[in-house]
Design a protein around this nucleic acid. Structure first.
Lengths: 206, 206
DNA sequence: TCTTTTTCTGACCGTATGGTCAGGTTGAGG
DNA sequence: CCTCAACCTGACCATACGGTCAGAAAAAGA
């Protein structure tokens, strides 16, 4: 009975199976939520047996936590990339577009986070108050400086960031609603790109 | 064994208990999601026994459906109230503020809907494509007319409505995240009111 | 090839959960 | 006060689910 620990380097098989499991878990957790997902569903989606899942991860919860913590960096990367030395409006617009692109390319990750936050972030609240808050505060200071220098219109930096999150993630998290309202034959994400361009253009114009 | 049907008028006790159950179910479903909520939790929150719940509702699912369909009208009321004969910007601003007020006063309802939509709206997709779409299309036409008459800046009406939903509901659905980032001693909803005023002011100014 | 370690599985277990039922209790109308 | 329908409950059931375990199968190493 060998524990799979980060101590000794992972074998080829371990890398492959752990990857497969996390991919399957993302699929199932994002669609069903933590409580709604079952190990059998994940096992089936991964093409592995249930005991085999639990050979690689000690519990259902451990899979979920691994997914969340592994994703947080990807999730915050676009904000990290916002350059204090860049042109203010261009930097903010680029951030918004990168987030919108993630709603198109990574809707499952978006929904996974949304599910977690909706339930009160029981497995993430620590990270929210530390890592996330620090990054946001840092970037908010940058935006505030831009704002005070008159390079963008005056605006609350924290709520500006919230608005980017809300407006971009909405197209991933509420996809069914958006599509139901728009009807077939329209590309919500394309239109959103145009609309949000206009919105932030007008909001930020000095 | 009497069925509780809408046929014969409800007794006093029925009205009271059905109300209590729906209130408790809203509390539990909105915090845990459908799958995460248990009948025992709802029964305890309602101060009733589990079999007694099932005396008034045939199943857990029935309680959930009743909640959702009963809530849809309240949810759409602010949009319905948008008056084509009113002053365009004021009407839109008023709608936004009413929605924001609902995020403050009815966060559980907001999260209940968010949960449902996130899971792909398995119990609501019919309503989304009919009742919701029709109302939104109707109001979108009004907004488009305002826009074409030059009374507000040109803007895609459907995405304008989406943006109001996204920006206001974000403060209810992602409450923990918003509070974690802002830190203690700030009132997110108050600040949001200011910020969104500015945002839509600049977006809509002709 | 032989040995050791890693990988994998069928069978099984305890608990939680949605739901049922026979029968008791309470309230309303006469 | 009596009767009948409405209301309520403890005990119970079947299933789903997370997790365990003894040992087989497959890789890796010598």
């Amino acid at each position: 009975m060998a524990e799979i620990t980060p101590q000794r380097p992972r074998t080829r098989i371990q890398r492959r199976n752990i990857g497969t499991i996390l991919e399957a878990a993302l699929e199932v957790f994002s669609a069903q939520g933590f409580r709604g997902a079952t190990l059998d569903q994940i096992a089936q989606a991964a093409g592995l047996s249930k005991p085999n899942l639990l050979y690689y991860f000690p519990s259902k919860e451990a899979i979920h936590v691994e997914l969340l913590s592994g994703l947080l960096d990807d999730w915050l990367a676009p904000l990290r990339a916002m350059d204090p030395a860049g042109e203010p409006k261009a930097e903010i617009m680029a951030y918004m577009h990168r987030k919108l692109e993630m709603s198109r390319e990574m809707p499952r990750e978006s929904r996974l986070f949304a599910n977690e936050i909706l339930q009160g972030a029981p497995r993430m609240s620590a990270l929210l108050g530390s890592e996330l808050k620090e990054l946001v505060d840092e970037k908010a200071a940058v935006i505030r400086a831009w704002s005070e220098a008159g390079r963008i219109a005056p605006v609350d930096p924290h709520h500006l960031i919230f608005s980017i999150w809300a407006l971009t993630q909405h197209y991933a998290d509420f996809d069914v609603q958006v599509r139901a309202v728009l009807g077939p034959g329209r590309d919500p994400l394309d239109e959103a790109g145009q609309f949000l361009d206009t919105l932030f253009e007008r909001l930020l114009a000095p």
